[in-house]
Design a protein around this nucleic acid. Structure first.
Lengths: 222, 222
DNA sequence: CCGAATTTTAAGCGAATTTTAAGAATTCAT
DNA sequence: ATGAATTCTTAAAATTCGCTTAAAATTCGG
C-alpha cells in the first residue's frame, strides 16, 4: 500500500513516515504543494495525506487538482484549522476525510484504514485457499498453524494474494513490494518466493505460488 | 504487439524493455534520434515510446517526422520536463500522450493500452472457436481442457488469433512475435506452428491453423 | 556499539525453452 | 510423373531462466 504525505513541518513528516513504514506502507513524501501535486499525479497512491498550509500551491488547490485527474484516490486532510468554514472548503475540494492536529497516530491509522476499505472492498483480512492474512495484526495462518513472516515476506504475499488469479510480473512485483523502478537486474524476488514457499508449502503438494516462466508468478485458485 | 523505445539512458531503457517483454510485447530500441526515426519509418510499430531529450535529432522532431509519414502510429512521450509549454509542443508535434519521469510502470502500461485499444478494441481475453486465451492469467483453454503454453507459443497464438481471418505472412509473424527483421532463413516458425498444432489439434480433425503455401498461416473460422 | 534478524547480492546448477539443422513428406508446375 | 520448392517433423544443441545456497550487507533492538 502506497501513501503520499504532503507536509512541510519536518517533525510531523518524519513522525508520520516512520509510523506508516512500521505499518508496512510504502511512503513517499513532499514538503510543498508543487512537488506533492506532481508526485500524486505521476504515481498511483492508495491514499494521500495532505496538510492544509503548505508552501507553494495550497493544500486545497492540490486536492482539487488531484481529484480532477484521479477521482478515486482517497485524500485525508491534516489541518490545524478547525473552523467549520475550512472543513467545508476541504470537503468541497474533494477531500474524503480530515483530521485535526494534534492527533493520535492511532486515529489517523484508523481513518486511513477506513478509506482503504471503501475503495477496495475488503476487511482487514485476505485469504487464499487455507491461507489467512490478518492485516491488522499481521498474523498469517496456514490452516490452523500460524506462520511467522518477515516484513518483506508479508508484503510480497499480500501483493500476490491481492492479485490472486492474475499473473504478477516481476516488474510489477518489484515496483509494488520493493518500490524499485529502474533496476531490472536483481534476483531478490526469486529468493523471497523461495522463502514463502518454504514456509507455506506442504511436502509433496504443488506450491501455492505458481511460476509463469519468463513472466512472473501467480496464485491461482483451483 | 510491437513497440519501439527511443531512450538514451541505458537503465531506463533496460527497465522498459524487460517490463514490456514480460507483458508480451516485441520490443525494439534505439538510443538516439536518428536511429529511432529510421526504425520507426521502416517498421510497423503498434506504439512508439519517445524520450524528449535524446542525442541526435530531438524527440519532438522525430515525432513530427514519424507523424508526417505514418499518421496512425500512436506516440507516447517520456519526459522529465513538465512545463505546460513543452507539453503543448509535444502534443502539437503530434504526440498522442505523454508521461512524466519518473513514472510507475503500471501507469505507462495503462497509457499504452489506451492507445492500443482505440485501434483494436480488445479485452483481456481472446477467443477462436473453442480456444480461449486469458491475457491476465496467461491461461489457454481448448474447450474445458487447459493447455500449457510457453512464452513464445503463447505469443504466436495470440498474434494468430488477433489476426484471425487474415493471412499472417511469415515476415509479419517473425517481426511481431520474434522481433527479427532481416534473417529470413530460419525455420523457427514452422517448428512453433508444429508445437501449437500438437497441443491444440485433435486427432482426425483438420488443424485449427491453416497453412497458406508460399505465404504464411491463417486461423480461419468455419 | 554489538549481535541477531532481515534483506540483498552473487554464483552454480539444472531444467525448460528456444533455436538450429537436416531429412521426410507434401505440394505444385511443367 | 517428375523435380523443385515449400513445409513438416524430429532430434539435438544452445540458451535462458528460475531455483537454491551461502555469504555479504543492512537494519534494528538492547
Amino acid at each position: 500500500m502506497r501513501v503520499l504525505i504532503v507536509e512541510d513541518e519536518k517533525g510531523i513528516l518524519n513522525f508520520l513516515r516512520d509510523g506508516l513504514k512500521e505499518e508496512n506502507f510504502a511512503v513517499d513524501t513532499a514538503q510543498d504543494g508543487n512537488t506533492g501535486l506532481e508526485l500524486a499525479l505521476v504515481n498511483d497512491y492508495d491514499v494521500v495525506l495532505l496538510d492544509w498550509m503548505i508552501p507553494g500551491i495550497s493544500g486545497i488547490e492540490v486536492c482539487r487538482q488531484i481529484k480532477k485527474e484521479k477521482r478515486s484516490v482517497p485524500i485525508i486532510f491534516l489541518t490545524a484549522k478547525d473552523t467549520v468554514q475550512d472543513t467545508v472548503f476541504g470537503l468541497e475540494a474533494g477531500a474524503n476525510d480530515y483530521i485535526r492536529k494534534p492527533f493520535q497516530f492511532e486515529e489517523l491509522l484508523a481513518r486511513i484504514r477506513v478509506q482503504l476499505r471503501s475503495t477496495n472492498e475488503e476487511d482487514s483480512a485476505l485469504t487464499f485457499e487455507d491461507i489467512y492474512l490478518n492485516l491488522d495484526t499481521r498474523q498469517v495462518f496456514k490452516g490452523k498453524r500460524e506462520i511467522q513472516l518477515t516484513q518483506k515476506e508479508f508484503a510480497l504475499l499480500e501483493f500476490l494474494i491481492r492479485n490472486k488469479g492474475k499473473v504478477c510480473t516481476r516488474t510489477r512485483i518489484i515496483e509494488h513490494v520493493w518500490d524499485i523502478h529502474f533496476d531490472s537486474d536483481t534476483s531478490v524476488i526469486d529468493v523471497y518466493i523461495n522463502f514463502l514457499r518454504k514456509k507455506l508449502d506442504e511436502d509433496g503438494k504443488e506450491s501455492c505460488i505458481n511460476t509463469v516462466r519468463g513472466v512472473g508468478y501467480i496464485m491461482r485458485e483451483v
